[in-house]
């Protein structure tokens, strides 16, 4: 005779519902992943590739929507999972664009994967850039290095809703010209009404005829109206620190500058604590923070 009856979590009604990743406080398959197919691979540089990934199940694909700044956990069955920020447009419901640098084990194998390969996607996770709030303002989109990958989502959003924003400036810097991402799209961006694209490299090669120097140099040439401007800054901590401090000198309030933080993540749901700083979880409270919050996050920069 059993003294108490077993409880089967899988019989809970929540567990039987179609898969949806929300923060809602109900039971769910937290580690179930959407199966997705790599439909296209675009070689950007020696180290980075852009993957087009389509969720296979139509119902799940329809359910998947995201906001600029959010990320997914990309699963390579048997080898692991990595957090990748979404580089594509939120209005693109057909496939998800992920720009991936060859850095660790999972990404190295992914770089060998071919079109048609089936991977897994969990998400989207995290918060987003406040695109609604920014409407009616001038927008500064500033990226350093791989920072172009997360910046491309708000960039798409702005170009697709061009009339909602005033002047748009894209500033992009890398160390060397061959590290520049999405070079084939610059012409398109430049031709969009009133978008000012500026590119700078630190170490030019013989083919480079553009600007040379640190990204902050580009800021000095801009006509900035501090109280009518929002800035999104993506890049390594040392870069966004310099850029944000420079923007502050122009008088832009810190709550009008947004950065996206990178951390180690193993779950995306505020549980594993790998991205935790004190009480802040980069995966659920971020990855997007205004600069004031970043300054208050100990050891964030």
């Amino acid at each position: 005779m059993r003294l108490f009856t077993p409880y089967d979590v899988t019989k809970e009604s929540d567990m039987l519902m179609p898969l949806e990743f929300t923060r809602a406080n109900r039971l769910m398959h937290v580690d179930k992943t959407y199966k997705a197919e790599i439909t296209n691979i675009i070689r950007l540089t020696e180290m980075e590739k852009l993957f087009h990934i389509r969720i296979i199940n139509e119902e799940e694909r329809a359910r998947f929507s995201f906001l600029p700044g959010q990320f997914v956990m990309l699963e390579l069955p048997g080898y692991g999972e990595v957090p990748i920020s979404i580089s594509g447009s939120p209005s693109n419901r057909g496939y998800i664009e992920l720009c991936i640098r060859k850095a660790g084990i999972v990404t190295s194998i992914l770089h060998k994967a071919r079109r048609g390969a089936k991977v897994g996607i969990r998400g989207p996770f995290g918060n987003s850039f406040p695109m609604e709030k920014m409407k009616g303002n001038n927008i500064l989109l500033i990226a350093g290095g791989l920072g172009m990958a997360p910046l491309r989502a708000p960039l798409f959003y702005v170009t697709e809703n061009r009339s909602e924003y005033q002047d748009v400036h894209i500033l992009y810097g890398t160390r060397t010209p061959d590290q520049l991402l999405f070079t084939y799209q610059y012409d398109e961006w430049k031709r969009i009404d009133d978008i000012n694209l500026q590119i700078i490299v630190e170490k030019p090669d013989i083919t480079w005829s553009g600007k040379v120097g640190m990204i902050t140099k580009l800021l000095d040439e801009l006509p900035i109206k501090p109280l009518e401007t929002y800035a999104i800054v993506c890049g390594p901590p040392v870069m966004f620190k310099f850029v944000c401090n420079r923007l502050r000198q122009f008088g832009i309030p810190m709550h009008r500058m947004f950065v996206s933080l990178e951390r180690r993540m193993h779950c995306g749901m505020g549980k594993c604590c790998r991205c935790n700083i004190g009480s802040t979880f980069i995966c659920v409270d971020g990855p997007v923070f205004d600069y004031w919050s970043v300054l208050n996050l100990k050891e964030a920069i």
């Binding site: 390579l76 060998k112 994967a113 071919r114 079109r115 390969a117």
Partner: peptide, 8 residues
């Protein structure tokens, strides 16, 4: 070994 359309 075959995996994800790759052959080792």
């Amino acid at each position: 070994m075959k995996y994800l359309f790759m052959e080792s």
